[in-house]
Amino acid sequence: MKLKRRKISYERKKKLYGYGFITIWLIGAIFLFLIPMVQSLIFSFSDVKIQMATQEITQTFVGFKNYENMLTKDPNFVKNLTTVLGQMLMDTPLIMVFSLFIAVILNQKFRGRTMVRAIFFLPVIVATGPVIKVINGDMLSQGITTGAKFSTLFEVNFVENILEYMGIMNVSADFAEWLSTVTSDIFNLVWNCGIQILLFLAALQGIPVSAKEAAKMEGATAWEFFWKITLPYITPIILASLIYTVVDSFTQYDNAVMTQVQSLSQQASYGPASAASWVFFIIVALCLAIVMLIVNKFVYYEVD
């Protein structure tokens, strides 16, 4: 009897300690996440004015006016939205397939593997900051002639030079252009895949050895092995990395909608800015829901 009571108290203690461990985060989440979220929802339905002298904020409820303005009157918002959406739809499948392919390769044994892996994760370090703009040559695009020589690899010139060098220059201009688009696409692809490759690689390393051995015993070819063993095992991570890709492509700071919201809020027009970000968020959530609904059907969870 005594023993039992002790055990219950241990369980209860653990419960309380559980709250203890998350308290720090909970305070932060309430005040820095949930309340701001509610507030921004309120902002989005109101006309927010800031008195310059006192910095006092006054809000008057205006209903859906901000949303209406954003969606019907603002000349850029819908355009930006469709650009970002289209970009996401185009990039996501490419990123997924490419990073899975690279992860499978990086999971094999070969000489210099550690170094190659280190190189492939390098974009994670560089690409999230403004340096990627320098690399892309964006900062020099404003009418500066010396910039033309810059980032030459992905200009048509360079590709043409290579073709010339290889002695196959007299192909049509269309082909050269197509090739240069492909090369610049590959550039973007490689530079945006770091995290996904990482996720897939971790997943591939988590495939149990027993499954590999069993497949080998049964005489599975590499092809069969990939489709019947590898793919089912990593479906949860496919889902996770799909979600990551979608979220990441939406929340990249340099995408059109993010930039617009930033400039709106710097002009202190908080109402429209909030409305814009809510519209954006709802679209993100919808996209995620659709992805989850479709992919979840194929996800295989191993039951222990």
Binding site: S40, F43, T251, A273
Partner: peptide, 10 residues
Amino acid sequence: IVPPQLILIP
């Protein structure tokens, strides 16, 4: 999944 700019102003 919430875009950071949503809560940035508040």
